[in-house]
């Protein structure tokens, strides 16, 4: 998706008005440098999918399989993630644009910090949920899910020498579209009609965080304790019902639509085109609920 969005927004912004010298480089409305940028964005995203898969050797139990295999798996994960990142760096250098290098490098830093927050949550044993409000949640999700796309969209504009204003609009589109995309996927366990089986959800997903804000931390922790049966196994079905009964789900939907609208507003600054329509359709798709 990320690569596609970078290509679409490049096409929507059209040729550079500032510099006519490199227009021969354009194929079907997209500069070759923007095409490379789309690849770089995908490479970085994939590298971190791989690095997310690394396990802590010290925490493994004997049922997890032979230690040697896990060590080898870690080794391969570190190496292949690094390999993808190194390739991304090489392609980035070839773009010959220091501002783009800076933007994308800082996006890598953002992504690392975002993943770091995800990790530190899952490692805290005694605490199932974080004591964070929705604004803190938004900051963290921006780092882990939006920064790369937002900055890649901005960089795509920089490569075509578009104005600072267009660069900012591209950034805003990338940011808000991916925020509403994340909210949309967080909401799925709560809005799906066929509720024969409970879809697993995270206690740090948007509806749960909003639910906690409405009910207060103490009341929410009490609900969690009540849902905890023998051996501390949480009855997610029960918690899901508790969240559904409150205002968490509807306000998460509102938030999703709010980000969607901001993404659409950013698109207004681009001239009408098929590419722009496609970008708008992505927003409609991630803000639609049954």
């Amino acid at each position: 998706m990320r690569g596609l969005v970078v290509l679409l927004i490049s096409k929507a912004a059209g040729p550079s008005t500032a510099d006519l010298s490199f227009q021969h480089d354009m194929v079907s409305g997209i500069y070759s440098s923007q095409r490379s940028l789309a690849e770089i964005t995908e490479l970085i995203h994939t590298a971190f999918l791989v690095h997310r898969g690394i396990v802590n050797i010290g925490e493994l139990k004997s049922c997890d399989g032979p230690l040697k295999d896990m060590q080898f798996g870690n080794k391969m994960a570190v190496l292949s993630g690094d390999f993808l990142l190194a390739n991304a760096c090489t392609s980035l250098a070839q773009l010959q644009n220091t501002k783009v290098v800076e933007l994308i490098s800082s996006a890598i830093g953002d992504l690392v910090q975002g993943i770091y927050y995800e990790n530190s949550k899952s490692s805290e044993e005694n605490c199932l949920t974080d004591d964070i409000g929705i604004s803190r949640w938004k900051e963290q999700v921006f780092l882990s899910h939006s920064a790369l796309l937002a900055k890649s969209c901005q960089a795509a504009m920089e490569l075509a020498k578009h104005s600072a204003e267009i660069q900012d609009m591209a950034f805003q589109y990338g940011k808000h579209m991916s925020m509403s995309h994340k909210l949309h996927s967080d909401l799925q366990p709560f809005v799906r009609e066929s509720s024969s089986d409970t879809i697993a959800f995270s206690l740090n997903s948007a509806p749960a965080i909003l639910h906690q804000e409405f009910r207060g931390r103490e009341a929410w922790l009490k609900q969690i304790r009540e849902a905890q049966g023998k051996g501390n196994i949480v009855d997610y079905k029960k918690l899901q019902e508790a969240i559904k009964a409150g205002k968490g789900v509807t306000s998460a939907i509102d938030l999703c639509r709010c980000h969607g609208n901001r993404a659409l507003a950013a698109l207004e600054r681009f001239p009408p085109s098929e590419a722009r329509d496609a970008l708008a359709n992505i927003v409609y798709a991630v803000t639609r609920f049954p």
Binding site: I54, V55, N56, E102, S105, I108, Q113, Y116, N119
Partner: peptide, 21 residues
């Protein structure tokens, strides 16, 4: 632990590349 160590390495690299840019 390995998970966080790899991320720390990635972060140092990204900061180096920002400084480089």
């Amino acid at each position: 632990g390995e998970r966080k160590a790899v991320l720390a390495g990635d972060f140092i690299l990204s900061a180096a590349s920002v400084a480089l840019a």
